[in-house]
């Protein structure tokens, strides 16, 4: 298990997303109405950058024309072929599953000791391949060319993604 602090909560507005490189993988972090999700930025179908797709509510119908629309279940629709994946579980409608990761929001006060003892990797702006895709609030820019860490401020909340396997930079 490797925990990565990817940014401040305020870096990802509602409806926004952040693409970051973690342990050599491109990962999309999403914020939908106060909940945060992380998915590997790779569609299991043909390898497209899944995390550049649209976020849609879940749309079902038991019979034609009688829709049930559930926007508490967010789906990510791949930009290449339209396959839909549940943001939380990565499960598609059929025999395909996108890789999802746990995301936590933690206060800086609790987080700072973990960063200091190395159990959580600090924000690395150089790994922000792209900030909030398609959003006006794209505050984070592609990073400087030298790795630089954000300090962890105790008064802020941070988004932490957990990847399987040992941490590596």
């Amino acid at each position: 298990m490797a925990r990565h602090v990817v940014g401040r909560v305020s870096d990802i507005p509602d409806g926004g997303r952040l693409l970051v490189d973690l342990q050599g993988h491109s990962v999309g972090i999403f914020h939908v109405r106060g909940r945060y999700y992380a998915l590997l930025n790779r569609c299991p179908h043909m390898g497209a950058e899944l995390c550049r797709g649209s976020i849609l509510g879940r749309l079902d119908a038991a019979v034609p024309g009688e829709f049930s629309y559930d926007d508490s279940r967010s789906l990510l629709r791949c930009p290449w072929h339209g396959w839909e994946y549940d943001l939380e579980t990565g499960q598609s409608y059929f025999d395909s599953r996108a890789r999802s990761y746990p995301v936590d929001v933690e206060g800086g006060e609790a987080l700072r000791p973990q960063v200091e003892d190395g159990s959580a990797a600090p924000i690395d702006e150089a790994n922000h391949a792209q900030a909030a895709v398609g959003l006006p609030s794209a505050r984070l820019q592609p990073g400087p060319y030298v790795a630089e860490t954000y300090p962890i401020e105790i008064e802020d909340d941070y988004v932490v993604v957990t990847l399987p396997g040992p941490a590596r930079r």
Binding site: V63, F67, H81
Partner: peptide, 14 residues
Amino acid sequence: WKGLRREVPWVDRL
């Protein structure tokens, strides 16, 4: 269907 399912959500399997 895999890509256009949303148009016809009543088609709930292959």
